[in-house]
Amino acid sequence: MEILQFALRKIIGGIPLILGVTFISFLLMVYYGPDKTYELLGKNPTAEQIESVRAELGYDQPFLQRYVTYLREIVTLDFGNSFSSGERVNSILKRTMPISLAVITPGFILGNLLGLVLALVAAYHRSGWIDKAIMGFSVVGMSISFLIVVIAFQLIFCSSYGLNWFPSRGWDVYSLSDYLRFVTVPTMATIFVALGYNTRFYRAVIVEEMGRDHVRTARAFGTPPAQLLYRSVLKNSLIPIITRIMFSIPLVVISGSLIIETYFGIPGVGKVTYDAITQGDQPILKAVVGLTAVLFVLTLLITDILYRVVDPRVSLK
């Protein structure tokens, strides 16, 4: 019951955020965005034809009314039809979202897990050569652009100039082995790019926790290293770790898959969004922005509940 009340309060508290996000993006993308009227018309349109298309696109209505329509679309989760393909936005999303999740999830999980493990190793050997080597690699990783990594990995693993082990583009997945064939290189690229940042962040969190009094107490009572890292360090660093992971979810799902999917020709939400950006397909962009904002509020809520689960000092008030 307490959780439900809390959830309700949080969701209501998230409304200003959703309003802000949708308003700013609506203003920029839809109101100031490109006029699609003439693209949808044949040559030499008549005045009536122009009128009817403008009415269909909603251009004839006043600004506020169009924004309210957008809000209604978010609440009802119905964003109309894509300008370019005419397909319902909902069915596009329903088709592409599972693909995006399948592409991004392994890399996201492994990138965070590996980062955490490397960070623990580095922090445990703090200032030693192992620490310096790991931190050196992570700075190198942070200094290479995502695009460079993607191009290089595709060259190395998917082209006749390199190993040519994996398909370079596309997504023909009907079995687990297909899945592994198509997902491996994108996953490696995602891990490579995220690892440097993750390792650094987690190491800083862990080193800070290691300096705390209660860790010294645990050591003074003979706690062995593995237990020390788990019980005293990791358990107590969960709040920043959870924060980082949770808050990267909404952005990674959109921005991360955007580049991967475009470059590897994978028909996920990222690719759809990219096409929508380049073609000014507003219904899709409106849906993506609106859903991301909703996802953010839900993330905030779940994060807060998780805080309560991992730290007895946090209350849901």
Binding site: G20, I24, L28, M29, L251, L285, T292, A293, F296
Partner: peptide, 24 residues
């Protein structure tokens, strides 16, 4: 804080695209 939250919640590349549209 609200403004910060809003700007952090818009997917970056979409935001750039939107600004690019808006600035013609």
């Amino acid at each position: 804080l609200w403004l910060k939250g809003v700007l952090d919640s818009i997917p970056f590349y979409l935001f750039v695209a939107a600004v690019a549209f808006a600035m013609q």
